[in-house]
Design a binder for these strands. Structure first.
Length: 818
RNA sequence: GCGAGAAUGGCGAAAUUUGGUAGACGCGCUAGAUUUAGGAUCUAGUACCGAAAGGUAUCGGGGUUCGAGUCCCCGUUCUCGCACCA
């Protein structure tokens, strides 16, 4: 009989839902396990393979843990604000609220068909006042601590999304992380969250969490800590001082010029009359350049002198001051001391403009390069001469500090998080501008500041909220005069930076978080999601979590204890995307094979963290597995009614077929546990297939008792990776209660794991010549005779001198001959 | 350019933790059985060369070892991340 998957899957989904089996009881905390997947952006293309690949296997892991006795919390929600819905509105006229809600309804139905253990009472969506009210509350708390502020700054502006972006949202090619369009620099007044107050803790905290090394190193890289010194250069004939940051203070004697960022405020003050024109021209020439062009390593260096001179504090030498776009205003002090002898960029620049080069580190004799970056003894450096780089650094810093011309400094690459967006579909920023009082916070009791429904959508780069008079016009909370609301909305990464805390009670209206539950259930025990969020969501969440800790809302330092990234499923080597039209729709497969088969196949494809190229070629493999499993249980329907389920058997009491099955079952349990626990689903499923093959071969010669023993265990093993099938099999053999309702796990019988015979390899000179079956743990002298009796062996040893014999118990017997 | 990871049959992949019979499991393929028929099911086979004995095989080249897919050195290709960060 063909496995009626649609009927059976529906049956169990309804059963689980009706009996609220996946509703978590938060009061039981000693065996709690919070298993979280990154919530869904509800786009019009609904659930795709990537979602399935993220959610299915993770749920299988959680089900395994549930069977093992953990109290699981597995929620799902909707990251419902965002640009795509608004762009869709501009294009089609459908309001973002309407399209989003429609998408959510469709996705909710799809999710049901996956058969995950989601606690539906915990569902949340970020686009409703009930949720975003607390974004505003969070903003107010940050503001009160001085961690939310407004400033005018050069910001990234996406020419297509018509809004500003955080640094993290700009790709390394200078394009928009979201749409791939060009990003340009604009000087605008924007809202920032002061993530930089937590820089050092964000860096140190990485040591305490179990995340992929790569992700941690990406965050380290993004934070970009560098140790060095700040050195002050006097300017000839001026009271102004130039401060430079360098990681190589030891090369100070080799500094032959200083370069300021073209936008640096000192440029106006220090440019001499003669050079005003060329400086202006230079500044104009780089204005039109995009950030990509400016920071491209392949671009030839440009720059002009500004006419004045700095004094090298180490040796009193007069050195020229230049401006060049390779110096960035936003990093360090916006000035560099140029040491051509030890820096490739400076070497290139000084060669082009014929500026002097002085080596201050002695390169080895065979060194043929230009700038020498490696270690060596100092030269041309007065009191540093002879010292190697590390010692030299220490000594010059001491000297600088004694002379008051510099100090040891730490710099970070991390910038504050720009959170304002000139768009509609996000959380309104709870700020009111009053002509008299200036920038005023909305009172907490007046939250939420609700998004008005009726606005004019535009692609002009102005927040649509400005078109809603009832929204914009407001009385000042301080003085009562006419005032205007902030019309920008928050970056949606604010929404996702704390959603995992809201799941415990998404409808709570007195606080953002149910503290009592959260304190027992946080951190998240396992977080699974895409690696593309390494420096965005995952960094922001860590920051917000630490802030919430500091204001007493959570009692832990890190939100996500364990993190795993699922791999990417590509189609013909390219990432699936709607725009490329190469998206594989899971619904077709669910219809054709059922959700269990599809889930199994995704897991069986290969290592979870590797992903891979999509092909449905092998899906018949998992389809057959499901069918054969079903047939097996149909053929043994109600075996439980004939005999009891026994704990264990004495191996000697079994016939050879039973023995073989009995051993295989127990070996499989052991193997399977290890594999699932480590997210190695492919090998876990392979072990189940091996077990099924064993059963198929030997079951007809087994007693009912052994059958019951085996089938009970087999259905429990199947249940995490094919949840509907598992329940069905469990019930087919005669169990009354659902597996998920009363979870259980079988521990393997240790005696069954011991092999009584083993095959050992016999090698001559390291080459395999024969194999030999011997009693397990046989000693060399017990095996030796048999080995030398073997004709295949004697053929290769005949007439040769035996030099050595190597014996490794239960593994090999290697004879070395000459 | 810098950093990290990877490379195994016709294909997806095991074995890498601990150096010890390479290719588990699955797809595909071949042959046979069964069926009115099947893209259904079952049985057997399937790394390559060879009739066999045997030989050759884990990206290429060296090395350590009785023994290397696994450890070390050099190189190639691919993927990912960073990229004038001073």
């Amino acid at each position: 009989m063909r496995y009626p998957y649609s009927e059976i899957e529906k049956k169990w989904q309804d059963y689980w839902e009706k009996n609220q089996i996946f509703k978590t009881d938060f009061s039981q905390t000693e065996n709690k396990l919070y298993c979280l997947v990154m919530f869904i952006y509800p786009s019009g293309s609904n659930l795709h393979c990537g979602h399935w690949y993220n959610y299915g296997p993770t749920d299988s892991w959680a089900r395994f843990k549930k069977l093992k006795g953990f109290n699981i919390f597995e929620p799902i929600g909707y990251d419902a604000f965002g640009l795509p819905a608004e762009n869709y509105a501009i294009k089609t006229g459908v309001h973002p609220y309407d399209s989003t809600m429609q998408n959510i309804d469709a996705i909710r139905e799809q999710l049901k068909k996956m058969g995950c253990m989601y606690d539906l009472s915990a569902e949340l969506m970020t686009c409703v006042p009930e949720y975003y009210k607390w974004n505003q509350w969070l903003f107010i708390q940050l503001y009160k601590k001085g961690l939310a502020y407004r400033k005018k700054a050069p910001v990234n502006w996406c020419t297509s999304c018509r809004t500003v972006l955080a640094n993290e949202q700009v790709l390394s090619d200078g394009n928009c992380e979201r749409c791939g369009s060009e990003v340009i620099q604009k000087n605008l007044t924007q809202w920032f969250f002061k993530i930089t107050d937590y820089t050092e803790e964000l860096l140190q905290g990485l040591e305490t969490i179990n995340w992929p090394n790569k992700t941690k190193s990406m965050q380290r890289n993004w934070i970009g800590k560098s140790l060095g010194a700040e050195i002050t250069f006097n300017v000839e004939g001026s009271d102004e001082k130039i401060s430079v940051f360098t990681t190589r203070p030891d090369t100070l004697f080799g500094a032959t010029y200083v370069v300021l960022a073209p936008e640096h405020p000192l440029v106006d003050k220090l440019t001499t009359e003669d050079n005003k024109k060329s400086v202006e021209n230079y500044r104009d020439s780089i204005k039109s350049l995009t950030e990509i062009e400016r920071t491209s390593t392949t671009k030839e260096k440009t720059g002009v002198p500004i006419g004045s001179f700095a004094i090298n504090p180490a040796n009193g030498e007069k050195i020229p001051i230049w401006i060049s776009d390779y110096t960035l205003l936003t990093y360090g002090t916006g000035c560099v001391m140029a040491v051509p002898g030890q820096d490739e960029r400076d070497w290139e620049f000084s060669t082009k403009f014929k500026l002097p080069k002085i080596r201050t580190v002695q390169p080895p004799d065979d060194f043929e390069g230009e700038a020498y970056l490696a270690d060596g003894p100092a030269i041309n450096s007065d009191f540093l001469n002879g010292l190697y780089v590390d010692d030299s650094k220490k000594k010059i810093i001491e000297w600088l500090e004694e002379n008051g011309t510099g100090k040891k400094t730490v710099k970070y690459r991390l910038r504050d998080w720009l959170i304002s967006r000139q768009r509609y579909w996000g959380t309104p920023i709870p700020i009111i501008y009053c002509p008299d009082c200036g920038e005023v916070l909305v009172n907490e009791e007046n939250l939420p500041v609700e998004l008005p429904y009726n606005v004019k959508f535009n692609s002009e780069g102005i927040s649509p909220l400005i078109s809603s008079e009832e929204f914009v016009n407001v009385k000042c909370p301080k003085c009562g005069k006419d005032a205007k609301r902030e019309v920008d909305t928050m970056d949606t990464f604010v929404d996702s930076s704390w959603y995992y805390l809201r799941y415990f009670n998404p409808h709570l209206d007195t606080a953002p978080i149910d503290k009592e539950i959260a304190n027992n259930w946080i951190p998240v025990d396992r977080y699974v999601g895409g690696a593309e969020h390494s420096t965005l969501h995952l960094l922001y969440s860590r920051f917000i979590h630490k802030f919430l800790r500091d204001i007493g809302l959570v009692n832990s330092d890190e939100p996500f204890k364990n993190l795993i990234h699922q791999g990417i499923i590509t189609n013909n080597g390219v990432k699936m995307s709607k725009s490329k039209g190469n998206v594989v729709n899971p619904d077709d497969f669910i219809l054709k094979y059922g959700s269990d088969v599809f889930r199994l196949y995704l897991m069986f494809m290969g290592p979870y963290e590797m992903g891979g190229d999509w092909s449905d070629k092998g899906i018949t493999g998992t389809e057959r597995f499901v069918q054969r499993t079903y047939d097996l249980f149909i053929n043994n329907k109600n075996v439980l009614s004939n005999c009891e389920l026994k704990d264990n058997f004495t191996i000697d009491s079994l016939n050879e077929f039973e023995k073989s099955v009995y051993k295989k079952v127990n070996q499989t349990i052991k193997k399977y546990e290890t594999e699932i626990d480590a997210f190695r689903f492919n090998t876990a499923i392979a072990s189940l297939m091996e077990l099924l093959n064993e059963i198929t071969k030997n079951f007809k010669n087994c007693s009912n008792e052994i059958k019951v023993y085996t089938l009970s265990r087999f259905s429990v093993l199947v249940s995490p990776v094919a949840p509907h099938l598992g329940e069905e099999c469990w019930s087919l053999i005669g169990n009354k209660k659902s597996l998920m309702e009363s979870p259980l796990w079988f521990t393997p019988d240790k005696n069954a794991l011991i092999e009584d015979t083993v095959n050992i390899a016999i090698q001559v000179n390291g080459k395999l010549r024969s194999t030999l079956e011997v009693v397990a743990n046989s000693e060399q002298n017990e095996v030796k005779e048999l080995v030398f009796k073997d004709k295949k062996v004697s053929k290769h040893t005949a007439g040769k001198e035996i030099i050595k014999e190597i014996f490794v118990k239960n593994r090999i017997y290697n004879i070395v001959v000459k």
